[in-house]
């Protein structure tokens, strides 16, 4: 398997994976969506809530706030020795105390660990009118995307490498396909059609449809993938990808052991 990074930002990454099967690309995708642990608010102790939102809605909104997650230092509450999921090895407390009039934002949360803080400080949680008070303690824990979407670290999706072939003998340069192509990746050069940026092809086959001579063919290569990873900010995209690979490798190791026992 060959991996090449096409582009990388704080939130997004585009990879080119070559020499793997669709099944493997899909298991990577699923590992990213379901198996990489990140922090999210899991429990709320509401002491005072005068706001217009019910405690439950408030809890839901708090859980949706993505938290920055260090790769080391915390364990899943199921694996923690404390057994309750309340010790500092598995839980981070975020406290909040506000009185209106104001807009309560994620930046108002005071974390017990400076490494586990909301990704952005400007996420609105609830509006308070004059005299309304809000006082709560939120417990954030590690969790897996398969348990709840709040623990989903990001998105991953891929497409097969598109192949656009122009039969130069048949092509008469009528430019119909150049006009029809939605992402505009075809161009005319020297009376013949050429592909400018095949990565942008969406495989809609419009060019095939409009070509009267059948000179253009769209297909794909299912051993090469354009793989995109998007995070919600809790991990960096390359960290997320590597963690997913690690989890997948661990799972394969477990599977191997089980098979050997048979």
């Amino acid at each position: 398997m060959e991996v090449k990074i096409n582009s990388l930002t704080d939130q997004e990454m585009e990879l080119r994976l070559e020499g793997i099967t669709p099944a493997m690309a899909n298991s990577l995708r699923r590992a990213i969506l379901r198996e990489v642990p990140v922090m999210a608010v899991d429990e709320l102790e509401v002491k005072l809530n005068d706001s217009a939102l019910h405690d439950e809605i408030l809890a839901h909104r708090m859980a949706m706030v993505p938290l920055k997650t260090p790769l080391r230092g915390y364990v899943l509450p199921e694996e923690c020795k404390c057994g309750e999921g309340r010790c500092p090895r598995c839980t981070v407390t975020l406290s909040l105390q506000k009185e209106g009039p104001c807009l309560v934002v994620s930046g108002d949360l005071l974390s017990s660990d400076e490494n586990v803080v909301p990704v952005s400080d400007s996420i609105p949680i609830v509006k308070l009118e004059r005299g309304q008070k809000l006082e709560l303690i939120a417990l954030a824990r590690l969790g897996l995307g398969k348990q709840h979407a709040k623990w989903q670290p990001g998105l991953a999706f891929y497409k097969y490498m598109p192949l656009v072939r122009v039969n130069q003998k048949e092509c008469d340069g009528c430019e119909d396909c150049v006009q029809a192509c939605p992402p505009k990746i075809l161009a005319l050069s020297g009376g013949k059609v050429v592909v400018t940026d095949v990565l942008k092809c969406i495989m809609c086959r419009m060019c095939e449809k409009v070509c009267k001579r059948g000179a253009i063919r769209v297909s794909f290569d299912d051993s090469r993938f354009i793989f995109r990873v998007e995070t919600n900010g809790s991990l960096r995209p390359e960290q997320l990808f590597l963690q997913a690979v690690k989890v997948l490798a661990e799972k394969c190791g477990e599977f191997e052991k089980l098979v050997e026992k048979l």
Partner: peptide, 19 residues
């Protein structure tokens, strides 16, 4: 209040409403 995450894909939107 408006949703913090995109209802369909889960992208963070909460910090973008103000702008």
């Amino acid at each position: 209040m408006r949703p913090i995450r995109c209802i369909t894909c889960g992208k963070l939107l909460g910090d973008k409403y103000e702008e």
